[in-house]
Design a protein around this nucleic acid. Structure first.
Ligand SMILES: [Mn+2]
Ligand SMILES: [Mn+2]
Ligand SMILES: [Zn+2]
Ligand SMILES: [Zn+2]
Lengths: 131, 131
DNA sequence: ATTGTCATGAGAACCATTATCAAGTAGCGG
DNA sequence: CCGCTACTTGATAATGGTTCTCATGACAAT
């Protein structure tokens, strides 16, 4: 359980992905990130972007959600657990913290005998700029 | 905006999907439903199952969620808006209603100027039977 | 029964994601 | 530095869920 995975190696590709994620304020798919990196002249493979984002998410360096269409999207993550209000049009995101959700999840889990609880909450809408 | 879509026609295939959904207590994917129908001797195409479930979901006859892996799953739906606690192993489901979530969603939307709000909340865990 | 419209389904197409695996490279010990 | 080894990369193929195509069949209103 305390198995320590080796830390990721520092490569040009990983640095590029990490860098671009700090500049983006919206949830972006792996394909989006790959296209944007290419746009900026970075030489990087699509598979590498997928792998890097998946690993960064596993390591807590970025948040990952699934859009209502089922595709994975990533965004740089502020410290601590939180949820999101996401614009369906442009991906603009606001971090939110619903009161009592964590405690309520635990309570409901106990009530029905469920263990290994996790919860997913995202709000979707249209932001002011997208009318 | 008040456009009335023509009601679905009554066909053997639609009846079969509708019938099986009333007997299932767990979220099932379109592929699951198709396999189960074939098992029971029903002649029905996979595309038809996909179309029928999508339409039933749009018409509010079944609930649809996406598993953490991103695949769509369907389940017969009790009246009224609600959310779910789903067993990751067997799909067993409990309907839940978090207090104040609807009102909180509206409040957060107003606060940030988002419109056309929607929210997605699902709890996942392991049910008593699945240890 | 006629007829216009909608539903069906086998297979192809689509598309996000993951697997392959040979070639490259980071990082460590010497 | 050097060299070794394990990790990373990326072009490409493979996977798998979902949707599209379109010819054929079935519903239902007249
Ligand atoms: Mn939370
Ligand atoms: Mn709700
Ligand atoms: Zn927007
Ligand atoms: Zn279970």
């Amino acid at each position: 359980m305390t198995s320590t995975d080796p830390p990721p190696r520092h490569t040009r590709q990983r640095a590029a992905v990490s860098a671009i994620m700090t500049t983006l304020d919206e949830f972006r798919t792996a394909q989006d990130v790959h296209a944007e990196l290419r746009q900026r002249g970075e030489a990087i493979g699509l598979a590498t972007v997928y792998r890097t984002l998946a690993r960064m998410a596993a390591d807590g360096e970025v948040d990952s959600i699934r859009t209502p269409e089922g595709v994975a999207a990533y965004r740089r993550c502020s410290a601590g657990h939180h949820h999101h209000l996401v614009c369906r049009e442009c991906g603009r995101t606001v971090e939110i913290t619903p009161p009592d959700l964590e405690a309520w999840t635990e309570q409901v889990g106990r009530e029905f005998g469920f263990t290994h609880l996790d919860h997913e909450l995202e709000l979707f809408g249209r932001c002011p700029d997208c009318g």
